[in-house]
Amino acid sequence: MTTHTTDKQATVSLVEAKARTIRTRIINMLGAAGSGHPGGSLSAADIVATLYFHEMNYNAAEPRWPGRDRFVLSKGHAAPVLYAALAESGYFPREDLATLRKIDSHLQGHPDMNKTPGVEISTGSLGMGFSAAVGMALGLKIDKSESRVYTLIGDGESQEGIIWEAGMFAAQHKLDNLVGIVDYNNLQIDGHVSDIVDIRPVAAKWSAFGWHTIEIDGHKVEQIIGALNEAKSIKGKPTMIIANTVKGKNVTFMEGQVDFHGKAPSKDEVAQACGEIEASGPLG
């Protein structure tokens, strides 16, 4: 639910605390699972926390409430950040998080819309969630709905051609109910995005594709809130927020480390990581 706080700083603090909680849950969940993707989950934690604890309208008791805003995690391997946010929002019990990736769990390695309440569409194959989000925005436009669609894509994921196909379509159809966010951590699996197949200048590319663009620090909650507000004021075109992030953010031994793209933390690493996150401020 949207948090109706008049005090701006209180809102920011609340979201920051939620982001820390989400980070500890990501770490614990991956530690219990023994596999999965910490780096890209942590880099997106502040963005996802801002969406679920400030920006979006939804009703956890009625996940498919037609009036809800939608969030599509196009970079589906970051499922832990989504699952943590959904559990914190009340879609399912927090205890479920410990079942991540287990054979009877509703929490699959990549998001599954038919298993997990609150997941809007199944993702995992990079690029396609973004197109699906464009389809959702289009459907909502046809219905003259007030609902908005938010979708998070990776910078590596941005190398997929489908991203740009969908991007052109969204601009063509003036989908101003759609907000894309690039988790720009400059890492993919094989190394730095700028060394593999560079996507720079990414903001200029999206502008050329007909999108309104905003560049922010993706770990500064005020800036994320500011960009989301600005997006609402933009009519006649979709908005792409380029969020500069650090892969593995808030866990020193994971920050900027390509090896923690898809490697779960050991027991000791879980303890150290949670210690660092908790030391950085109160949980929410």
Binding site: L126, G127, G154, G156, E157, Q159, E160, Q188, I189, D190, G191, V193, I196, V197
Partner: peptide, 24 residues
């Protein structure tokens, strides 16, 4: 973008001029 998982990274190390990472 999956050189380690597929093990093509071994070829990359020996023949960097004949290995091309296309990204995702």
């Amino acid at each position: 973008d999956l050189a380690k998982s597929t093990t093509t990274i071994k070829f990359k190390k020996e023949f960097p001029d004949r290995f091309f990472d296309c990204g995702v």
